[in-house]
Simulated assay, not measured.
Amino acid sequence: MTLKKLSVEHFNQSYQLAQYAFRFADDQQHRNGFYQLMKHSTIYGAFYKQQLASQVIATPLKVQLFHQVFDMAGIGLVSSDPSFRGQGNIDQLMQQMLEDCYQNGVTLSYLDPFSYPFYRKYGYELTFERICYDLESSKWPDSAKAAGYVYRMNWEDAKDGVKQIDQQSDKHKYGGLLCEDWWYDYKFKEKTNVYFALYYNQQDQPEGYLIYKIESGKFICIRWLNLTVEAYKGLNRYIFSHKDSTERITFEKGYDRNEGVFYP
Rank of each mutant, 00 (worst) to 15 (best):
residue 88 G to V: 11
residue 91 D to G: 09
residue 92 Q to I: 10
residue 95 Q to R: 14
residue 104 N to M: 05
residue 105 G to E: 13
residue 108 L to T: 14
residue 111 L to C: 06
residue 112 D to C: 11
residue 113 P to F: 00
residue 114 F to L: 00
residue 116 Y to K: 12
residue 117 P to E: 00
residue 117 P to A: 08
residue 119 Y to S: 14
residue 119 Y to C: 11
residue 120 R to K: 15
residue 121 K to C: 08
residue 124 Y to L: 11
residue 125 E to F: 10
residue 125 E to N: 14
residue 126 L to N: 09
residue 127 T to G: 04
residue 127 T to H: 03
residue 132 C to D: 08
residue 134 D to C: 15
residue 135 L to M: 10
residue 135 L to I: 07
residue 136 E to K: 15
residue 137 S to G: 01
residue 137 S to I: 07
residue 138 S to W: 09
residue 139 K to P: 04
residue 142 D to P: 03
residue 144 A to L: 11
residue 144 A to S: 14
residue 148 G to Y: 06
residue 149 Y to K: 15
residue 151 Y to N: 10
residue 151 Y to T: 15
residue 152 R to Y: 02
residue 156 E to H: 05
residue 157 D to P: 01
residue 157 D to G: 04
residue 159 K to G: 01
residue 159 K to V: 14
residue 160 D to T: 13
residue 161 G to L: 01
residue 161 G to K: 03
residue 162 V to H: 00
residue 163 K to H: 08
residue 167 Q to H: 14
residue 167 Q to M: 08
residue 167 Q to W: 06
residue 169 S to D: 02
residue 172 H to N: 12
residue 172 H to L: 12
residue 173 K to E: 13
residue 177 L to S: 05
residue 178 L to P: 13
residue 178 L to Y: 03
residue 179 C to Y: 14
residue 180 E to P: 03
residue 182 W to M: 08
residue 191 K to D: 04
residue 191 K to R: 13
residue 195 Y to V: 04
residue 198 L to A: 09
residue 199 Y to D: 05
residue 200 Y to D: 03
residue 201 N to C: 11
residue 206 P to D: 03
residue 208 G to E: 00
residue 209 Y to C: 09
residue 211 I to A: 01
residue 216 S to P: 01
residue 217 G to L: 01
residue 218 K to Q: 13
residue 219 F to S: 01
residue 219 F to E: 04
residue 220 I to V: 03
residue 221 C to T: 03
residue 222 I to Y: 05
residue 222 I to H: 02
